[in-house]
Design a protein around this nucleic acid. Structure first.
Length: 608
RNA sequence: GGGUGCAUAGCUCAGUCGGAUAGAGCAGCCGCCUUCUAAGCGGCCGGUCGCAGGUUCGAGCCCUGCUGCACCCGCCA
């Protein structure tokens, strides 16, 4: 029996998907365990080898750190333990790994053999998934992200949820999970009363004529309605009637609501199209008919308490200002429901009807308390089977260059549309400048495509490349910079490879490299090859931790290693076997970059 | 008052389960284009990992306290 380790793939992987690096890790882990039992006895079976990639190539490729922590239990010096284990491991790994060495206080270092790496590269090349196995346990997964509010414009606050949620969904989909991407739009609530009333006043023909609605800027419309609501008592009263009418199923109110939703939906869709994001809309209103039943289900669990007229659940581990337990209110004293109720109803539906096993909420970190509370109540009320995992994926704020919340010059929250426009405009200006500098002439559609692709990619990548839990400073100059960890740098690395294939009239896919010897003679070739082979390992980690910046980091490293290789190792003019080896590396690098960037929601270009 | 998160190079940020000499990029300085796009590559400079204790063979990472910043705290989402 193999030790429990997150590195151990199932038999399924080993038999059907001989993946690049996970294969090596699994075999080293197994060899370690066997050696440990043979040397120190059955009692030590299952000990985690604490296997990790080395942080310095001079220590080889992987290191096992377990000898250090075993020292106390075994009552022997760590180096002696390491020496014994290294000796016992050597024969079992000899087919793919050099004899392990002991260094420092007791690290066991492993260096993979070159011919093993070559074999893995060939496997990777032959695979249309670049050697990345689909998950052995595909999960029905819901990713809840984006979630703008009807009748409001998408602003920069929706940027992160949309981009991060999409990237997470893409990665999980690629790994074979059954992903439902849900857009939990804010399409219900008291604000609709004033919107309906305002629509009835300003655009009455819309309520009777198909497609007559043209309220222009929804933000302005919302602001007008809000102003009237605050200033005009009669309007306020009619707004309340609007809410009642809507909730009571009054056809006119319902029609007005649908028109507003439809108008918003069209606007949202423009943004999603530009970003290349797909979503299934299922707004708050969808769960409306389920709210009463949800409250009853909680009541049936015995958790529900009536306090000051509201029905609530008192939370464990939360206190109010007076030190008393904090309630989560699921039904207000006026009988209405709030967003906690909606989230609980959604949770119930997603588990009961959607059969979700993993539910991921991509929202700003400010909602961490809210989700902790909702999850706690759901758990305690028995709404969440042990097989279901609830995950809040929080992210930090987008800040201006002054370190404060991003604002326009006039002090408003920037609209997402304007922000994307600006990024594309700057991308275009930068491209045109470069074309002028280099004396290049390109057709207008080329400039359009490159400016748009790079501009959007820059915005997305800048967001994804940050650790999502912290806030980041939004800077057009930095995200569009051609140097550093930016979209243009990565896209350019890809373009360089396409340039090689154009120049040499090479169709990488058709090249008969399989039959030719592969030689990784240059240290830069070896470093690039080893990095390529880590793709499967990286994606597995990301699927667990849901941190897209890890993928960005991997792709940035890959681009750097490719550029170093490109600088020192001519491809087309090289003699065999270097030429074929290098073509293989180019092919794999390009495909890995393309896949990785696509998983982040970025589109590659062949020229730029 | 309570809770959550953050604090790493001049700037923006990484830092994998607690492992070897804490890494990138930008900015600054110095080099490299007759050769696959120099949108590139190499080198130099740059650190009291907020402060103080503690645990550990070993702490940027874990624990305690403190300081500073951000966000949340009963019927908004």
């Amino acid at each position: 029996m193999l030790p429990p380790s997150r590195f151990i793939p199932s038999d399924y992987f080993v038999r059907f998907f001989p993946c690049p690096m996970k294969d090596a890790i699994a075999r080293l882990t197994a060899a370690f365990d066997t050696a440990l039992v043979a040397t120190f006895g059955e009692a030590w079976a299952g000990t985690d080898p604490l296997l990790a990639a080395t942080n310095n190539p001079k220590f080889g490729d992987y290191q096992a750190n377990a000898a250090l922590s075993l020292a106390k239990g075994l009552g022997k010096p760590p180096r002696a333990i390491a020496e014994a284990l290294a000796g016992a491991i050597a024969p079992t790994v000899a087919d793919f790994c050099e004899a392990p060495t002991v260094a420092g206080p007791g690290f066991i270092n492993f260096t993979l053999k070159a011919d093993y790496l070559v074999a893995q590269l060939r496997t990777m090349r032959a695979s249309d998934r670049l050697g990345v196995a689909p998950s052995a346990k595909p999960q029905r997964t819901i990713v809840d992200f984006s979630s703008p509010n009807i009748a409001k414009e998408m602003h920069v606050g929706h940027l992160r949820s949309t981009i991060i949620g999409d990237a997470i969904a893409r990665i999980l989909e690629f790994l074979g999970h059954d992903v439902l991407r849900l857009n939990h739009v804010g399409d219900w609530g008291t604000q609709f009363g004033m919107l309906i009333a305002h629509l009835q006043d300003t655009c009455p023909e819309a309520l009777t004529t198909a497609d007559a609605l043209d309220i222009g800027d929804l933000v302005t419309f919302y602001q007008q309605a809000k102003r009237r609501f605050d200033e005009d008592e009669a309007f306020k009263a009619r707004s309340r009637e609007g809410v009642v009418g809507l909730q009571g199923g009054d056809p006119d109110s319902r029609r007005a609501w649908e028109l507003l939703c439809e108008q918003s939906r069209r606007e949202f869709q423009k943004i999603y199209d530009r970003l290349g994001v797909t979503l299934t809309e299922r707004g708050e209103s969808f769960y409306n008919p389920l709210l009463a039943d949800t409250v009853e289900a909680i009541a049936a669990s015995g958790l529900l308490v009536e306090d000051q007229g509201a029905r609530c659940v008192f939370l464990e581990g939360f206190q109010n200002k007076d030190g008393n337990p904090l309630p989560l209110i699921v039904q207000k004293s006026d009988g209405g429901y709030n967003y906690a109720t909606t989230d609980l109803a959604a949770l119930r539906y997603r588990i009961g009807e959607d059969r979700a096993e993993r539910i991921i909420y991509v929202t700003d970190a400010g909602q961490a308390n809210h989700f902790t509370q909702v999850f706690q109540v759901a758990q305690r009320a028995g709404l969440v089977p042990p097989t279901v995992e609830l995950v809040h994926v929080p992210f930090g704020l987008v800040q201006g260059e002054d370190g404060k919340k991003l604002k326009t010059r006039s002090g408003d929250t920037p609209k997402l549309r304007d922000l994307l426009d600006e990024a594309v405009a700057r991308s275009r200006a930068s491209l045109e400048q470069r074309l002028a500098d280099e004396g290049r002439e390109e057709p207008a559609d080329f400039i359009d495509t490159v400016a748009t692709t790079v501009g959007i990619a820059a915005v997305k990548y800048a967001d994804l490349s940050q650790n999502r839990t912290s806030s980041y400073i939004f800077s057009y100059d930095k995200m569009l910079s051609l140097q550093g960890n930016t979209a243009p740098y990565l896209l350019y690395a890809y373009v360089r490879i396409q340039s090689i294939s154009r120049k040499g009239s090479i169709d990488f896919a058709a090249e008969a490299i399989e039959d030719l010897p592969i030689a990784l003679g240059d240290p830069l070739e070896l470093a690039l090859a080893k990095h390529l082979l880590k793709l499967d390992e990286i994606l597995e980690t990301i699927a667990e931790e849901l941190l897209p910046n890890r993928l960005c980091e991997y792709l940035f490293d890959l681009s750097k290693k490719f550029n170093q290789f490109y600088d020192r190792c001519p491809v087309l003019q090289a003699e065999e076997p270097a030429r074929s080896s290098r073509l293989l590396l180019c092919d794999l690098t390009a495909r890995t970059l393309k896949l990785g960037l696509n998983l982040l929601g970025l589109t590659t270009l062949d020229r730029m």
